[in-house]
């Protein structure tokens, strides 16, 4: 859908394909890689400066869309917490035969616990399928942005980008 981003709020797959940091199907076959859903030219480059492998480039002017060299990307996830727009996640297509793994940024309470089953959600926040939490990670460098790793059915590989927020305990 054209102009999805400016009407619905989230980018459509067509709009995402314009981003040089949105992987093609074959890029996913090597293992976990970063995915940047950033399709507008805004002055911002922490993704570039955070990458230890030099896999992300923005260059000058810093409004350039980020580009990922998927050969260099190891899927380490440093950029996921570094992005101020929370627009990056890491996806691993090869996690297991039927399952994929996503590591996404999360800044809400309560946090899920490792082993929890949660609702894996799409770009609209709609529930897509179930997800299992395998890692909840916080580092000083992440500056309060928590990284959550969730396993979900490969069937929904492209649609899942996050999890539904958990209700606060009364």
């Amino acid at each position: 859908m054209k102009n999805c981003l400016k009407k619905i709020g989230c980018p459509s797959i067509e709009e995402l394909k314009n981003s040089p940091a949105f992987p093609k199907k074959e890029d996913y076959l090597k293992g976990p890689i970063a995915v940047i859903e950033c399709v507008e030219e805004i002055p911002c480059n922490p993704c570039e400066t955070s990458c230890a492998k030099g896999a992300i480039s923005v260059g000058k002017p810093i409004t350039n869309l980020p580009y990922i060299d998927f050969e260099k990307c190891s899927g380490c996830g440093i950029c996921v917490a570094a992005c101020p727009g929370l627009a990056i996640y890491v996806k691993d297509y090869c996690y297991s035969e039927d399952e994929a793994l996503i590591t996404f940024p999360y800044e809400y309470l309560p946090l899920p616990k490792v082993g929890d089953t949660v609702a894996a959600a799409g770009r609209n926040g709609q529930e897509i399928c179930q997800g299992k939490i395998v890692k909840v990670f916080q580092s000083k460098v992440g500056n309060k942005t928590v990284l959550i790793s969730m396993v979900y059915s490969k069937q929904f590989f492209d649609e899942v980008v996050t999890m539904k927020r958990l209700k606060m305990n009364a």
């Binding site: 981003l5 400016k6 009407k7 619905i8 709020g9 727009g85 627009a87 770009r123 539904k164």
Partner: peptide
């Protein structure tokens, strides 16, 4: 007819299930 804020900001909120009405 179009949203005003940065796409990454709207996407964050959209992911949380908040509907936008232009």
């Amino acid at each position: 007819p179009a949203l005003g804020g940065y796409g990454v900001h709207t996407a964050k909120v959209c992911r949380a299930g908040v509907p936008f009405y232009t």
